[in-house]
Amino acid sequence: MLKIDCPFCGPRDEAEFRCGGESHIQRPGPHDAVSDAQWADYLYMRQNPLGWHFERWLHAAGCRQWFNLARHTVTHEVRVVYAMTAPKPQVEATEVRS
């Protein structure tokens, strides 16, 4: 049960949230100029790192806002929480803190 720091509400239990998967995925367009390969990539191809994952979260049972965070896929440390519209931040590849 992660504890997630919602940018609006502060720390809440994971049960109030829903994970929206990998972030920073741009919807390709216009629809008549996108190749099948590009569209398949957008629909189905996702990163699967051992390390920092930049993902979207929704505070579904709270303020209902979407935001981003960087989570380590092994330790589940949440290093950065940032706005949905903000760019992907730099996260050090250093030793994971507790």
């Binding site: 929704l58 209902r64 979407w66 949905m84």
Partner: peptide, 10 residues
């Protein structure tokens, strides 16, 4: 929720 996702994220 679906609509809000599009309006907030895309």
């Amino acid at each position: 929720e679906w609509m809000e996702e599009w309006l907030q994220c895309e």
